[in-house]
């Protein structure tokens, strides 16, 4: 399988700040690739390196095998959906979408046909005459998508495209984006700080931390077998157990992750260890219970229906040993 994008030892430094630091990365053609990480982790910079808005200070970037060191953004067959959508406020929706063909010299009639096709694709038929200012956030998001797709890019970059939408709309758009990607077969590279979004949409995902990739893999790989405590905490909101505790529970003396939903609370003395309930958070579908085991806080998910303990109660903690995932030191 061809790689749509490859990074070889790519760095982007701003003076002493290492926004992206010696990253190696390959994104398979036709995949839905997510870049996940907290703000400032380098994921957006990576995206901008692909689009060409940033130039690497070291390393080599290839797009479909071609070195793009000397290729400016407007000569890359890669398009972007911007975080703020970046719709041109002085043009109506049709002209926004037809912008790519327009600058490429396509005649008015032809490019308007294309624009209407794209608007139909994102279910905005009939909105062509509106100005971006007259649209809702979700509609603007679709226009941005249509505008980025009109040039038939080989790679579509999406920079936190759903960040500004409310929860319901976001979930609907997640499904739509996924469906669209399947239908078009284009490589999507998707930047997000929302782990649920990344897990639910991506074929592959890269978790960024401090300019480096902490882990690359499929969602289940990353979720079930986080490579580092950072990944465990950030992706799964997993409990990260220090080596001493892992050893005490029967594992090797190494960092380990333990997912809250794998834990059952039992009576004091009946589990693998004991602790004190520090706090409770009601989540609707269940409750998240914080239990202090010595100095370590362990979170457990108690399904609705099961009796949740009260704060201050002494409880036992138990889980299947297989749920304990030992990580590489980090």
């Amino acid at each position: 399988m061809t790689n749509a994008v490859t990074f070889q030892n790519v760095s982007r430094h701003y003076g002493k700040v290492k926004a992206v630091d010696a990253v190696d990365l390959s994104i398979a053609e036709g995949s839905f690739f997510a870049m996940l990480g907290p703000s400032g982790s380098g994921k957006t910079t990576c995206l901008r390196l692909i689009s060409g808005f940033e130039k690497p200070t070291a390393g080599e970037i290839r797009i479909f095998g071609r070195d793009v060191s000397d290729t400016p953004p407007n000569r890359r067959n890669v398009n972007t959906v911007f975080q703020d959508y970046a719709l041109f406020p002085h043009m109506n929706v049709r002209d926004n979408v037809a912008y790519g063909p327009m600058v490429a010299g396509v005649g008015k009639a032809e490019r308007y046909i294309k624009a209407e096709e794209m608007l139909a694709l994102v279910k905005l038929d009939g909105y062509g005459d509106r100005k971006p200012g007259q649209l809702s956030g979700g509609q603007r998001q679709r226009v941005a998508l249509a505008r980025a797709l009109v040039n038939e890019p080989r790679v579509l970059l999406l920079d936190e495209p759903l960040g500004a939408l409310d929860l319901k709309l976001r979930e609907a758009m997640q499904d739509e984006l996924k469906a669209l990607q399947k239908r078009l077969g284009i490589t999507f590279v998707f930047v997000t700080h929302d782990q649920h979004e990344a897990l639910s949409m991506a074929d592959q995902l890269a978790v960024f931390n401090e300019g480096k990739i902490a882990q690359i893999g499929s969602p289940s790989e990353v979720y079930d077998r986080p490579a580092t405590p950072f990944v465990a905490d950030f992706v799964g909101s997993s409990n990260v157990l220090p080596p001493s505790l892992t050893a005490q529970l029967g594992g090797a003396a190494a960092w380990a992750s333990l997912r809250p939903e794998a834990i059952r609370l039992v009576a004091k003395g009946k589990g693998k260890m004991n602790g004190t309930v520090a706090a409770l958070r009601y989540l609707g579908a269940g409750s998240r219970v914080s239990v202090m085991v010595g100095e370590t806080e362990i979170a457990a998910l108690v399904p609705a229906g099961d009796a949740a303990p009260k704060a201050g109660a002494e409880v036992g903690i138990t889980f299947e040993t297989s749920a304990l995932h030992v990580m590489a030191e980090s």
């Binding site: 689009s51 060409g52 808005f53 400016p72 953004p73 407007n74 000569r75 890669v78 398009n79 972007t80 911007f82 975080q83 703020d84 970046a86 719709l87 041109f88 406020p89 002085h90 912008y99 790519g100 327009m102 600058v103 490429a104 505008r147 980025a148 040039n151």
Partner: peptide, 25 residues
């Protein structure tokens, strides 16, 4: 800035970006 990047991203040259985006805005 994203407006200018969007223009360039969609294939516009610097001149086109100037005429169709910067100047009108």
């Amino acid at each position: 800035v994203s407006m200018l990047e969007a223009s360039s991203d969609l294939g516009a040259t610097l001149g086109q970006t100037f005429r169709t985006v910067i100047l009108p805005l």
